[in-house]
């Protein structure tokens, strides 16, 4: 009979033009209530213009052990960054 309300992860768009950002979590029986709870818990100081809620159990994440194969290969691809290229000062901003 006793059943804890599921946990929801809360994402809030702080200002128009920005992405939603994870701000924390809370409990709610369903998604609709999670939105209302998020409004009451996480926007008390005028912090948001839009809210996403995602059931914590529905999130799929990378495992910490995969860090090497997943993220390290990009470390050596230095040519993807503008600082890789030397442009003479005379050319000005590029």
């Amino acid at each position: 009979m006793k059943k804890e309300w599921p946990l929801w992860e809360i994402f809030i768009r702080g200002q128009h033009g920005l992405s939603h950002r994870h701000v924390g979590s809370l409990h709610a029986p369903d998604a609709e209530t999670a939105i209302l709870n998020a409004r009451d818990v996480y926007t008390r100081r005028n912090e948001g213009v839009s809210i996403w809620v995602v059931k914590a159990a529905d999130i799929t994440a990378t495992a910490p052990g995969d860090k090497g194969p997943i993220f390290e290969p990009s470390e050596t691809k230095v040519y993807r960054h503008p600082t890789f290229y030397d442009i003479p000062d005379e050319i000005g901003h590029m």
């Binding site: 009979m1 006793k2 059943k3 309300w5 029986p29 369903d30 209530t33």
Partner: peptide, 16 residues
Amino acid sequence: GAWVREGLMAHAEKKA
């Protein structure tokens, strides 16, 4: 508060 927590959970399950 137990009946409130249980009641709202039961409703969410019915709705789902």
